[in-house]
Amino acid sequence: MTASLGAVVLGTPDPRGLAAFYAGLLGWRVVSADPDWVRLADPERERPGLSFQREPDDVAPTWPAHEGGVQMQAHLDVLVDDLDAEEARATALGAVVEAHQPAPGVRVMRDPHGHLFCLFQPGS
């Protein structure tokens, strides 16, 4: 049997709302949705996808990490051609730029529900 990544799943109190944010950011489409689960896919291929699962008590991680904070388990890296333009577009969709930025060519941001993601340019 061959294994391959089917999707990344993010927990959120509002699956439809967070899916709308990432659909706008990535240009992906909703392929299945109900109140507790939404799945997005790239228009060019079905998998891997990005899914959102209802987790009413989801707590956003601390950034940068520090003792006693909620530790980040994972984050999404989003490849972009124009970092400044995509940062502006992401903030218009509801994202927030983090104060701590670890490296040039990368922009650490939070989606509207507090999940961390990075915009980055090729070679960064």
Rank of each mutant, 00 (worst) to 15 (best):
T2R: 05
T2W: 00
T2N: 11
A3C: 09
L5I: 15
G6V: 09
G6M: 05
A7D: 14
A7Q: 15
V8P: 01
V9A: 06
V9E: 11
L10Q: 07
T12A: 09
T12V: 10
D14G: 13
D14K: 08
R16W: 09
G17E: 15
L18S: 08
L18C: 04
A19G: 04
A20I: 13
F21A: 06
Y22W: 10
A23F: 04
A23H: 01
G24H: 02
G24V: 08
L25R: 01
G27W: 08
G27F: 06
W28Y: 04
R29W: 07
S32Y: 15
A33V: 01
P35Q: 02
D36L: 03
D36P: 02
W37H: 08
V38R: 01
R39M: 12
A41C: 12
D42G: 11
P43N: 11
E44N: 05
E44F: 02
E46T: 14
E46K: 13
P48M: 03
G49N: 12
S51L: 03
Q53M: 14
Q53A: 11
R54H: 15
R54K: 13
R54D: 08
E55W: 07
E55Y: 07
P56N: 08
D57M: 04
D57P: 10
D58Q: 14
D58Y: 10
V59S: 04
P61E: 02
T62V: 13
T62R: 02
W63G: 09
W63F: 11
P64R: 01
P64H: 08
P64S: 02
E67L: 03
E67I: 00
G68H: 15
G69N: 09
Q71F: 06
H75G: 03
H75A: 09
V80H: 00
D81A: 15
D82R: 01
L83I: 06
D84G: 08
A85F: 03
E86R: 03
E86M: 05
R89P: 00
R89H: 09
A90Q: 00
L93D: 05
L93F: 09
G94M: 11
G94T: 10
A95F: 07
V96T: 15
V96P: 10
V96R: 15
V97F: 12
E98P: 04
H100P: 00
Q101C: 14
Q101E: 10
P102G: 11
P102N: 13
P102H: 14
P102W: 11
A103K: 02
A103E: 01
P104C: 10
P104M: 08
P104K: 13
G105F: 09
G105C: 12
G105Q: 14
V106N: 03
R107S: 04
V108D: 12
R110L: 01
R110W: 06
P112E: 12
P112V: 14
H115A: 04
H115R: 01
L116Y: 09
C118V: 04
C118H: 06
L119F: 03
L119Q: 05
S124T: 12
S124E: 05
